[in-house]
Amino acid sequence: MASVSNSKIKLTYPGGQTAKASVGELKSVDPTWEPPACWYEPVFSPKHQDSKAWDCGRIMFWQDAGTIPKDKNAPTPETLATFAYDKVKVPDTEVELKPEGKSTVKLPTWAWLDKATFKDVTVRADLPGTGLWAVTTAKPVALHLEPGTEDAKTFPASGDCPVNEDGSIGDPYKKGNAGQDPPCGIQYLGATSGEPYELKASITWEISWEGTGGAKGDLPDGTFETTQDMNVQEIQSINR
């Protein structure tokens, strides 16, 4: 039996690849979703072309060159789209925070991501000898914050920060914002003691695809999570 690692599917990245020093794999929000377990691919010469299978029932069979077998395990544009989805790499970048390093009890911490940080990620998959192709696109649509303790508030209350029209998330803190609630952020109500809180920030990526013959569709959203240590101090005030 042939392993999927021997697949002849060719992957390209129309928008350029995410920097290898900082990448992560998406996790589908649908726990039951998996990339295709098997499909048939052409092998050998174009003159006498047959197909190979990976756990598909038939190991080999003859097929006219340039044609797609009439079989439930025949490759389709969606097959390639789901294969490409499994190869999507997204930026692994920490959320920018203000104040940095250490927050203060009951004072809001602003959180944001610059519009240049998260862009659409595209992966194209082509299966030579079949004319089949698909382009899978992952589009960032939301940031979700979990403070790492129940003794905290999030802004918005749901913890879900949508993407702005310009592609950014939240707003950078500016002078004059003191005392205001951030459009995206957290407020810790208790100080850390020894161990920092673990702030979890997960980006939701909306997945769509298009392929041969005008075929197109959607796949389950994907998420990628990062964790940041948060130290929270308490400021003492003296009343006279």
Rank of each mutant, 00 (worst) to 15 (best):
M1S: 14
A2H: 06
A2M: 12
S5Q: 08
S5D: 08
N6R: 07
S7M: 05
S7N: 04
K8R: 14
K10T: 07
P14S: 03
P14F: 08
P14I: 00
G16L: 02
Q17N: 09
A19W: 14
K20E: 08
K20Y: 11
S22A: 15
P31V: 08
E34Q: 15
P35Q: 02
P36H: 05
P36W: 06
C38Y: 04
E41H: 03
F44E: 09
K47W: 15
K47T: 15
S51G: 09
K52L: 03
A53P: 06
D55W: 15
C56Y: 08
I59D: 14
F61Y: 14
D64L: 11
D64Y: 12
G66N: 12
P69T: 04
K70Q: 13
N73A: 12
N73F: 15
P75C: 03
T76C: 04
P91V: 00
T93S: 05
V95R: 00
V95Y: 01
L97R: 15
K98S: 14
E100R: 11
G101N: 09
G101I: 02
K102Q: 10
K102F: 10
S103G: 11
T104M: 05
V105N: 01
K106F: 03
K106Q: 10
L107I: 14
P108F: 05
K115N: 07
K115F: 13
A116N: 04
T130H: 05
T130Y: 05
L132N: 04
W133M: 05
A134P: 02
V135K: 10
A138N: 05
A138Q: 04
A142E: 07
L143E: 02
L143H: 02
L145K: 05
P147G: 03
E150D: 12
D151I: 03
D151S: 13
T154D: 03
A157C: 01
S158D: 09
D160M: 12
C161N: 03
I169Y: 02
P172E: 10
Y173H: 12
K174V: 12
K174W: 12
G176T: 04
P182G: 06
G185E: 07
G185Y: 06
I186M: 04
Q187S: 13
L189K: 13
L189G: 05
T192C: 07
S193W: 10
G194K: 09
E195N: 13
E195P: 00
P196Q: 00
E198H: 11
L199K: 07
L199N: 00
S202L: 03
I203V: 14
T204L: 06
T204G: 04
W205S: 01
I207W: 08
S208T: 13
W209Y: 12
E210V: 03
E210S: 15
G211V: 03
T212N: 03
T212K: 06
T212C: 06
G213T: 09
A215D: 11
K216H: 12
G217H: 06
D218L: 10
D218P: 00
L219P: 05
D221Q: 07
T223D: 01
F224Q: 01
E225S: 13
Q228P: 01
D229A: 11
M230C: 09
Q233E: 15
Q236V: 13
Q236K: 15
S237M: 11
N239Y: 12
R240C: 08
